[in-house]
Each structure stands twice: as C-alpha cells, then as structure tokens.
C-alpha cells in the first residue's frame, strides 16, 4: 500500500516536470503605428503643471512638485512649440519677492527669443508682475521649439550657498 502510494507520487512529480507542447495563440490587438514623436511642449506653461520640467531649458530651480511658482536664477530659459506665428503675444507672470527686492532694489528684465531681443521692462516695486508684448512674426517658427530667455540685471545672492535668485516664475507662453 505504502509502496504504491510512493510510486504514484513519484510518477506524478516527474510528469509535472515534463515539457508540454507549446500552446497556439491568436494574434493580439494591433498597436497603432507610432512613427513620429509627439509634441514635447506646447505654447503655454504654468509652473504647477506636471509637465513644467519639459519646458525648462535652464535657469529655473527645482521646486516642490505641483508648487505654483519656482525660483529663477539670473537668466531663466524656457522652450515652447508653436503651431502658428501670426499675431502672437508673449506673456510672463512672475513675482518679485519682497525678501530679495530689499537687496536688489528696482530691476530691469530683458526678454529674448532665440537670443534676439524681444523687449525690456523695468520694475520699481516688489509683488506680482505681468509682462506682455506682441511678437514679430520674424522671430518665431513652427518647425522646432522657440527658446525664450528673461535676463534680470540684478539678483539676490544667497550668502549660504551662493545661489543667485532672480524672481518667482508663475506662468509664461504665447497666446493670440
């Protein structure tokens, strides 16, 4: 009795290790052909967007995720992808923090598109700021992203780590 049980168990174990014939499968659902890159960036970005990192070229410090603003250095640069170039305005919403303004005093910001001058603005008091200007069509393109820089003439330099703080960036982009 015991011997039979033992033999049956051994045979069962051996059978379980046998290689079975592979099964047949039907073709799966077909994936759509994806042969081009989707647009990485659009024409407007707010700093609380999860996509904000994709728009930043340089000069913007990392903030808490989903924070409404981010500190910039002296020359923050952003990139945008435009689908048209006619009749567009560039705008930027930002904040001059009282804490840094105490040290810098009034500041001048020079805006550039792909390194070419777009405009200059002077800010004599801290707080919320809005810059907006029409953009000549000749400065824009749709074939590849355009880069916008905002150059501040004076920055606060942190005595602890030497980081240069320009302003708090909230939102920027192109709109009709």
């Amino acid at each position: 009795m015991f011997r039979r049980l033992f033999i049956a168990a051994t045979v069962l174990l051996c059978l379980s290790a046998c290689t079975p014939e592979p099964e047949w499968y039907a073709p799966p659902m077909q994936r759509a052909a994806l042969r081009k890159e989707p647009r990485a960036v659009g024409s407007v970005i707010t700093m609380d967007s999860p996509m904000a990192d994709s728009y930043i070229v340089s000069g913007v410090l990392r903030g808490e995720p989903l924070s409404q603003w981010r500190w910039t250095n002296q020359r923050p640069e952003l990139r945008f992808y435009l689908t048209e170039t006619k009749g567009l305005k560039f705008f930027m919403d930002f904040v001059l923090a009282e804490a840094t303004f105490k040290f810098t005093g009034p500041v001048t910001v020079r805006f550039l598109i792909d390194g070419k001058p777009l405009g200059i603005a002077h800010y004599g008091k801290p707080g919320d700021q809005h810059y907006e200007t029409e953009v000549p069509e000749s400065l824009l393109k749709t074939s590849e992203p355009v880069t916008v820089a905002a150059e501040v003439d004076k920055v606060y330099v942190s005595p602890q780590d030497g980081v240069k703080l320009g302003f708090l960036l909230v939102r920027a982009g192109f709109e009709q």
């Binding site: 989707p38 647009r39 967007s49 999860p50």
Partner: peptide, 11 residues
C-alpha cells in the same frame, strides 16, 4: 528631461 515625450507627469 523628456517627460512630455514619455507622456508622464511628475506627481
């Protein structure tokens, strides 16, 4: 750097 190309957003 390419979050948009991946189609992901930082949470």
């Amino acid at each position: 750097a390419n979050a948009a190309l991946w189609g992901i957003g930082l949470l």
